[in-house]
Amino acid sequence: MAPTHPPKIPPPPAPHWKSAKGGAVAATPASASETDDLFLKKAWEIALAPAKAIPMNAIMMYMSGNSLQIFSIMMTVMLFMNPIKALSAVGSTFSRYDNERTHARLWPVKLAFIALQLATIALGIWKVNGMGLLPTTRSDWLAWERERQPLEYSAPIFQGAFPQ
C-alpha cells in the first residue's frame, strides 16, 4: 500500500555535501606502466575476492543442513544469484582497468574471476544435490516410467454375490 507518487517536497537548502573524490586528487601523476601495474594489481584483487568467500560459504552451507527450510533455501539461492550476476557483468567489472595496454594482460585475471565464480556455483550445485534437488537418482524419473501394458485382457470375475 505504498504511495505511488511521492508528495512534492521543496528543494533542500544549500548543500553541505562533501566531495566524494575530494581527498584523493593530490598525488603525483604516475607513469603509464606504473598505472597499468597498479590497475592489474587492483584487478587481481577483485578477481580473487570470491575465493575468500568460498570457504565461508562452504562452512555456512555445511552448517545449514540439507533440510528444505526457508533459511537454507535462501542461502542456496544467493549462492547461485551472486555468481550469475557477477558473471553477466564481467566486462563492466574490469572496464575501469581496461585500456589498450592492459587489455591482453587482463585475460588471465578475467578467467580467474570466472573460474572462481564457477567454483561458487559448483558449491551451490553440491549443496542442491545434498538437498536432494538434483534429479540424479532413479526415483526422480519414476514418474516418467510407465506401467507395462498387458497384451492380453482379463476381466475381473463377478464377486458381488457371496457364497450362499
Binding site: L142, E147, R148, P150, S154, Q159
Partner: peptide
C-alpha cells in the same frame, strides 16, 4: 479374489530411503 475393476496405481515403484526404486509387480491378471 482378483484385483478390483477400479484399482488405479499412482506410482509403479516404491521409493526407498536412498532414493532408489523397488519396482512393483503390477499384474492385472
Amino acid at each position: 479374489e482378483g484385483r478390483p475393476a477400479h484399482d488405479p496405481v499412482a506410482s509403479i515403484g516404491r521409493v526407498l530411503g536412498d532414493r532408489s526404486v523397488m519396482y512393483k509387480y503390477l499384474n492385472q491378471h
